[in-house]
Computed example of a mutant assay.
Amino acid sequence: MERLLSNEWILTIANYSVTILMLIVFLAIFETVTKYNNWEEIKKGNVAVAMATGGKMFGVANIFATAIQQTESLITMLLWGGFGFTLLLFSYFIFEFLTPGFNVDEEIGNDNRAVGLLSLLLSVGLSFVIAAGIKQ
């Protein structure tokens, strides 16, 4: 397996495949913690949900991109990516906690684009902070 992964083409496909698989898993987890159905809301044109979901997708991809650059193995990349995702998920709960005047999930579900934009920016911004901590 190590010999196979020494080929840059194969390694790129492996990194891509693992990242896509984990993105699907992580989106499924995000789906369970939100009160709204992401894909149904996006289908209906809910821009706030699209922004929040897109921010999460970008954040996870950014964390995995850095993990790919900073680590030497698929397993280490996967561990860092999982750790980074956990921190990103925790950030979502902190966002909910820090806004006691309104419920983030309800506002995003009601297409409050200001809250959707804040959620997007929080996910993207913190993904860079998380990614900066990834070391070999």
Rank of each mutant, 00 (worst) to 15 (best):
L11Q: 04
S91E: 09
E8R: 03
A14E: 05
V104M: 08
G84M: 03
I20G: 06
V115Q: 11
F90Y: 08
F90W: 10
L98I: 09
N7M: 13
I24K: 04
L87W: 07
Q69N: 07
V115I: 10
A28V: 07
F83V: 08
I68S: 00
F30N: 00
N46G: 10
T34E: 09
L23F: 15
G54Y: 11
K35C: 05
P100R: 00
S6D: 11
A50E: 14
T76F: 08
G84S: 02
L78F: 09
T34W: 09
E107D: 12
Q136M: 15
G125F: 11
Y36W: 12
L121H: 15
T71S: 03
V47M: 12
I63M: 06
L122F: 06
Q69S: 13
T32A: 11
I24F: 13
E8Q: 08
I68G: 00
K35R: 15
I20P: 13
W39T: 15
G81L: 00
G81V: 02
E107Q: 11
I63E: 08
A131I: 05
F83Q: 05
L88C: 02
A131C: 12
E107S: 13
D105S: 06
Q136G: 12
E41I: 15
I94H: 02
I130Y: 08
F95W: 06
L89K: 07
E8S: 15
T71D: 02
M77K: 00
M1S: 14
L117D: 10
G81S: 04
M77R: 05
Q69H: 11
G116S: 01
V115S: 07
L89E: 04
F128L: 13
I24H: 04
S119I: 05
L4W: 14
L79I: 10
V49F: 08
I130V: 15
